[in-house]
C-alpha cells in the first residue's frame, strides 16, 4: 500500500542527507511504529508519504500513485491523513465542526455530504458533543482528536501520526492512542511516528530509524531485545523491558515476548 524504493532526501544546504537509500513496504491494514531520536529522519520519512516532501532520488508510491507526479498529489493527500505534533497549529477555524469540514470543503464535496461526514467523523473520535464549541477551549488531547476527525472526514485509508502524542499529558496521550487503536480495528492502516517506546508495544511492527537509515524493522518483541542497537540509536526501551533485561542479567530466564508488567510478573513469579 505504501512503497519506498531507494529513497534519498537532502534538505537544502544540508551536508548529510536526511533520508539515505530507504526502502520500505507497508501493507494495508497494518499498524506500524516509526521510532528514532530527534533528527533520525523519522518525520522526514513521514512527510514523504503524502508528498509534503518529494524524494531527491528514488520513488514513493502510495495506493499505486507516485508522489512525484503533480496530478497525483491531491488524490494521495485524500488517501493519507496526517496529524502533527502541536495540537494548536493544525486547526484552521474557530468552531470545532467547521474545522472538521475544512478538508472535505477543499475537495469540493456537496454540502449535505460534508455535513454527514463531519457528524460521522466527530462520532468516531467521541467528540459529537463538542461540535459547536470553540477550539481554543479544548484540552490538548481533545484538540488532537478534532485534528483526527478533520482527517477522517476526508475518508482516508492511511493515517499518519507525526509525533502527535509528544505534546500531550498522559491522559491526553491515552485518549489519542485509544482513538487510533479503535480506528485501526475498523481497517485503517496506521503509521505512528514517535520517540516513546511505551506507545509501540501493541504495534504489528517497529521501524527503527537512525542517521536517515532504517536500522531495524521487526516485531516489538524482537526490536526490544536488540539492546545494543537501541542504545546506539539513542532510544530507551519501555521501563518494563529495561527491568526484564536487568533481571535476565541476574540470571532469571524471561522470554522475549514479555513486554508489560503483567507478563513480567507472570514469567518471573514461578521462578521465585
Amino acid at each position: 500500500m505504501i512503497q519506498f524504493d531507494h529513497v534519498t532526501f537532502r534538505y537544502e544546504n544540508a551536508d548529510e542527507p536526511a533520508l539515505c537509500d530507504v526502502s520500505l513496504r507497508i501493507e494495508e491494514g497494518s499498524f506500524v511504529a516509526i521510532v528514532g531520536h530527534n533528527g533520525s529522519g523519522k518525520s522526514t520519512l513521514a512527510k514523504h508519504i503524502n508528498g509534503l516532501l518529494l524524494p531527491s532520488s528514488g520513488t514513493v508510491t502510495v495506493c499505486g500513485l507516485q508522489t512525484n507526479l503533480e496530478e497525483n498529489i491531491l488524490p494521495i493527500r485524500q488517501q493519507v491523513g496526517m496529524a502533527f505534533q502541536n495540537p494548536d497549529n493544525q486547526l484552521v477555524t474557530t468552531i470545532v465542526e467547521e474545522d472538521v469540514a475544512f478538508g472535505p470543503e477543499n475537495l469540493g464535496i456537496e454540502p449535505n455530504e460534508i455535513r454527514s461526514r463531519v457528524d460521522e467523523a466527530l462520532a468516531s473520535v467521541g467528540m459529537t458533543n463538542y461540535a459547536e464549541k470553540a477550539v481554543h477551549h479544548l484540552s490538548g488531547g481533545q484538540k488532537q482528536r478534532i485534528a483526527i476527525a478533520g482527517i477522517l472526514a476526508l475518508k482516508p485509508r492511511i493515517l499518519v501520526l507525526d509525533e502527535a502524542t509528544a505534546m500531550l499529558d498522559p491522559s491526553g496521550r491515552k485518549e489519542l492512542i485509544d482513538t487510533v487503536k479503535s480506528l485501526h480495528k475498523t481497517g485503517m492502516t496506521v503509521l505512528m511516528v514517535t520517540q516513546y517506546m511505551e506507545e509501540t508495544t501493541e504495534c504489528d511492527r517497529i521501524v527503527v530509524m537512525n542517521h536517515g537509515k532504517v536500522v531495524c524493522d521487526d516485531t516489538p518483541k524482537a526490536v526490544f531485545s536488540e539492546v545494543e542497537l537501541l542504545a546506539e540509536s539513542n532510544l530507551v526501551p519501555p521501563e518494563t523491558v529495561k527491568v526484564r533485561n536487568a533481571l535476565r542479567e541476574l540470571g532469571y530466564s524471561i522470554p522475549d515476548s514479555v513486554l508489560n508488567a503483567e507478563q513480567l510478573a507472570e514469567a518471573v513469579c514461578p521462578l521465585l
Binding site: 521501563e239 527491568v243 508488567a261 513480567l264 510478573a265 513469579c269
Partner: peptide, 28 residues
Amino acid sequence: PNVTKICTEMNKRGISIPTTICTEAALL
C-alpha cells in the same frame, strides 16, 4: 511507576513483595 505495577502484579500472584518498591534499583 512501572516498577510499582510489576510489584502489584507479583503480589496478585502470591509473591509478597513490598509495594513501597517503586524504582528499578530497589526492585533489583
